[in-house]
Amino acid sequence: MNKLTLVLAIMLSGSLAFSAQARDQRDYHEMVYDSGCKTCHDQGIKNMPSDQACSQCHDIDELAVTTARQGDEEWQNPHNNLHYGKEVPCTECHGEHTPKQVLCSNCHTFEYPKHK
């Protein structure tokens, strides 16, 4: 039983490593990949990272300043928006391994040319 578990674990980790490599990676996150998957996958490799994972490195208040918009676009700041303020979890708009649409595109035609 133990042996079987071990074999399964090895197979599983092998396939996961492979699938992670096969997926999109962002160059600027290279350092994070070097530190291992668990750096972001803080709830186990099979699970989505927690909503706090990104905030190990990124600060929502700083992001809100970086993406601030002026005048009648004030509330289209993706990091401090009209509907949810600063409380939208990062992964609602950003996908590390697969591209994502911004949440606003459900209803609006706003353009965020720098969105990744």
Binding site: H83, Y84, E87, V88, P89, E92, C107
Partner: peptide, 9 residues
């Protein structure tokens, strides 16, 4: 993942 439900939109 976000609060407010339909009331927010």
């Amino acid at each position: 993942p976000y609060f407010g439900g339909n009331s927010a939109i």
